[in-house]
Amino acid sequence: MLADVDALAAEGKWKTLMPEAIVNAATRNGKMFAVPINIHGQNWIWYNKSVLDSVGASEPRSWDEAIAIMDKVKAKGLIPLAFSGQKTWERGLFNAVLLDKGGPALWNGLYAKRDQAMVRGADFRAAAETYAKLRGYVDAGSPGRNWNDATALVIQGKASMQLMGDWAKGEFAAAGKIADKDFGCAIIGSKGGGYVMGGDIFAFPKLKDPAAAKAQMTLAKLMVEPETQILFNQKKGSIPVRIDVDATRLDPCAQKAMKLVADRNQQVASVEMLAPPAMNGALEDIYSQFWNTPAMTIDQFVDKVVGVLKQQL
């Protein structure tokens, strides 16, 4: 049903220029069937610089450091963590903490290998504990809030930081805020970071008309050209899907991202690329339930996660 773009990929050396996880996600049976057009980072910390300055803190490098900063922010009477209590973002926050505590090894162990022993391990427990601790740093209005309303709290200086994908950059830009001056962006992780890569793709249905099929390939080729990539991603907030473009034309956060993605050890595939929606959904329910049920113990939480892995979704 879909036209493969493997010839273009070979011609443009996509497989060497794009991160492996992205190429894999677009490949079936050894052929590329989709054109990846960008990389969205999902685990950014966005912080308000003047709020952090006012408590004498600098950019956090791990969630433990972030919590230390948030304690000071809380003492000042501001909202430490701008949070949108919807299932997706509750999962997003857990995943960010998971990557911080366990690094890509735990990440892939859970989502790709479904390793039950790793879930019962110390790193996973540490992630669950930190996640549970974060409940104390959100405000009463967080349940059900939309993510962009949470971003607005950071922009207005009512909250110190938010965990959100790079699409949040658009909110800052629309408010006239400038990266590295008004707000900061950080990828944090105590086990060597990790940049969680999502992204968008184009796929082309197979056509009978050769002229139309040729036009498809022309479009596909154009979308991956370096110039298109830069101009498109300047607007989209994501970063180019190929690592050989001129990063200096992008904003400071995107430049940081380009540097991270160029390092193979920092490349982390998004959970959507690693596990089917049935499993991610089942885990999301559990993360969300845990977040909203302070009475649930870490053991119960671990058991529930293992229970999902056992279902072999």
Partner: peptide
Amino acid sequence: GPGISSEVPAKFVMDHLFERAN
């Protein structure tokens, strides 16, 4: 939400049928 505290059966069916491909 919050969590799963106001879930209802019809929503369970819809979510698993469409969003979660189950």
